[in-house]
């Protein structure tokens, strides 16, 4: 009964992982027999200014997306708690919908919103007498133009996670604190936040890894431009996969990204853990 999943996992997850690690140390391509080259590929990737820039870009995106989304979702989840039943049911359903849309469709919608000539964003600006902007081509805006849809798409999901956590805290805690005269701020600090620890960890990890993996939205909206200002590592590696017959570079880059993803999850996990220890 275990056999089917075991075979599928071995063939499509474990074997490729082993191959990736092995191939990253060789100069293989699809056309010739590979030779062992040690850390050569890794050195090339790490020395490549495009790869370095793409890592920098994606970290900028992480710092744009994750804190904003986190704060907005936390505030809004607290707000939903105070709404009437009917309204909160409507709100919960509505804000969740963007999550089920594919990244490609999200990218298409926002490309249209940002469109220089017909986009609604510029139409609005011009309505107020302001000048339209080339949102996706101007280095001043390009990064924000890909961060915004990313924040938008999972805002509802993060909010609902937060809400689930909030509703899980017994109301007695708050009542008791109120009786003792604790202010709303103190109640949040000493009841809400400690009790939400697990949810916070989960949201931060998935937010960071999700942002680090941004790909489809960027591909559709800016395709990495202008001048590589929004080129994320995934998009960079995707372009390499398509254009570069020597696969060693691509695989080594992919392994590096996987390590960054893993390490970041671990760091976020640690940070939140130790915060808790101080309490």
């Amino acid at each position: 009964m275990l056999l089917p999943t075991f075979l599928l996992l071995s063939l499509f997850a474990v074997l490729p992982l082993g191959m990736s690690v092995y191939k990253s140390f060789t100069d293989f391509s699809f056309y010739k027999t590979p030779e062992f080259t040690g850390f050569h590929n890794y050195r090339i990737v790490l020395a490549d200014p495009f790869f370095r820039k793409s890592v920098l870009v994606v970290f900028k995106l992480v710092f744009l997306i994750v804190p904003l989304q986190f704060a907005a979702a936390f505030l809004f989840a607290n707000l939903i708690k105070g709404m009437s039943k009917k309204v909160s049911a409507f709100v919960k359903t509505t804000i969740y919908i963007p999550l089920v849309i594919s990244g490609i469709v999200v990218g298409a919608i926002f490309s249209f919103i940002y469109d220089y000539q017909g986009g609604i964003l510029n139409s609005l600006l011009q309505f107020f007498g302001l000048e339209g902007q080339a949102w996706t081509a101007d280095p001043a805006f390009a990064l924000y133009s890909v961060a915004a849809p990313a924040i938008w798409q999972s805002f509802g999901y993060v909010t609902l996670m937060m809400l689930a956590g909030l509703l899980d805290i017994p109301n007695d805690y708050y009542e008791a604190a109120k009786m003792d005269g604790a202010s709303a701020f103190r109640r949040m600090l000493h009841i809400t936040i400690p009790n939400m620890k697990n949810i916070f960890i989960f949201i931060l990890i998935s937010g960071v890894t999700g942002s680090l993996s941004l790909f489809e939205i960027v591909l559709m909206i800016t395709n990495g431009g202008p001048g590589g200002d929004t080129l994320t590592p995934f998009l960079h590696l995707f372009n390499h996969f398509n254009n570069d017959p020597t696969m060693g570079y691509t695989v080594a880059g992919a392994i590096l990204m996987a390590l960054i993803l893993g390490a970041f999850s671990a760091v976020v996990f640690r940070l939140v853990q130790s915060d808790k220890a101080i309490d």
Binding site: T5, F6, F12, A13, V14, L15, S20, F234, F241, M247
Partner: peptide
């Protein structure tokens, strides 16, 4: 051992295996 073998795959980001999965 098998449980760890299964769980391990959950923590491997897709990016690490896409290209070699393609080769497979």
């Amino acid at each position: 051992f098998l449980w760890v073998y299964y769980m391990m795959t959950m923590f491997v980001p897709g990016i690490a295996v896409y290209i070699t999965s393609f080769m497979v």
